[in-house]
Computed example of a mutant assay.
Amino acid sequence: MLGHALFVIIVFLIWELAAARGPLEPTFFGRPSGIARYLYKGFVTEGQLWLELGYTVLGAGISFVGGSLCAIAVGLVFVKFPRIHRATEPYTTLLNAMPRIALVPLFLLWFGLGIGSKIAVGFSLTFFIVLSATIAGMRSVDRDHLLLSRALGATPSQIFFKVMLPSAVPVIFSGVRLGLIFALLGVVGAELIAAEHGLGQTVAYLQATFNVDGVMAILILLSLLGLGASSLMSRLERNLLAWQ
């Protein structure tokens, strides 16, 4: 941890010196001192960034939870009833192939400029990622375990809930962790196009006003937000899968 902190400090010092001495033009690359001033003003002096951060986190959280729960439920139904999966697979593949960012104008038309359209984009990204992971995890169960369970007289429901589902949890959780990141990306991407609030909308405004320090500050903030979410999910995964 100390090594990572030292590396980041060195990178920012080199960046600041390069911006001050000339190799890097602050107009195009910003400088760490300007980034720090923007963040201090946004979080401490004026506090406006708390509101924008809250909108983005709320949208990403709702789309992640809703998309993950729906995807896991649908995935379990597909595995339990293969005929339903075969009948719907072409349509789910077609929907998943659609570029969600290109659908943002439609979501804006349907759900408005508010947080609803951002949740719809994040939900659509999370749903298909977690759905694929759920199906893959359930199908990756060791066949020897299934044969042994049947030989010992386990019922189909017991095999499903006590053998298949626990064995598939690691793969499902990998999809859930990835779904969290894509929920955040979807919400921010939709905010960049059109929004009333959010960090994506803030980046769009700062870019239009040529405030490079502000743009860099929001990008760093989003990176830290994604890193924190990923680390939290990894820790939760280790705790939940400690039995393995």
Results as ranks from 00 to 15, higher is better:
A133C: 08
P166L: 13
A5S: 10
Q158F: 13
S174M: 07
A204W: 08
A183E: 04
A18C: 10
L206A: 09
R177P: 07
T93M: 15
A87Q: 02
Q207A: 03
I172K: 06
M233G: 15
F210Y: 14
G198E: 10
S157W: 02
L152R: 04
K118T: 02
F43C: 08
R100S: 03
I220V: 10
W110N: 05
G67T: 02
T92S: 11
R31N: 15
L24F: 13
G175Q: 11
G189C: 04
T27M: 12
L17E: 11
G66H: 00
G198W: 00
V74H: 03
E237I: 07
G226E: 06
N211F: 15
L240Y: 05
L199R: 03
A5M: 03
Y40F: 14
L206N: 03
L184S: 01
G198M: 00
L125F: 11
G30T: 10
T92F: 11
L147K: 15
F28S: 12
I9C: 13
I193D: 01
V212T: 15
L58W: 15
G200Y: 05
I135T: 11
L24R: 08
D144T: 08
G137S: 10
L240F: 10
S124G: 03
A136P: 01
P166W: 11
V215K: 09
V203D: 00
A183T: 06
G34A: 14
P90G: 07
F43A: 06
K162W: 05
P26H: 14
T202W: 00
Y38V: 09
R139E: 07
V212G: 01
G22L: 13
G228E: 06
V77D: 03
G214T: 05
S174F: 05
F43Q: 08
G42Q: 01
T92R: 01
P90S: 09
P170Q: 02
L199T: 02
P166V: 09
A151C: 15
V188M: 00
K80Y: 14
V65S: 01
V187N: 00
R100H: 04
W110P: 13
L224F: 06
G214F: 06
I135V: 14
A71E: 13
T27V: 12
T155F: 06
E52H: 13
H4K: 10
A136K: 07
M164S: 10
W15E: 12
L51Q: 08
H85F: 11
E46W: 00
A87Y: 02
L180I: 12
M1N: 14
L17Q: 04
I119Y: 00
F182L: 14
F182D: 08
V57C: 03
E16Q: 15
A5W: 06
Y40E: 12
T209V: 11
I159T: 10
C70E: 10
P99Y: 08
Q48D: 09
S231C: 06
G198H: 01
R177T: 12
L206C: 07
V130T: 09
S174P: 08
R177E: 03
G226N: 04
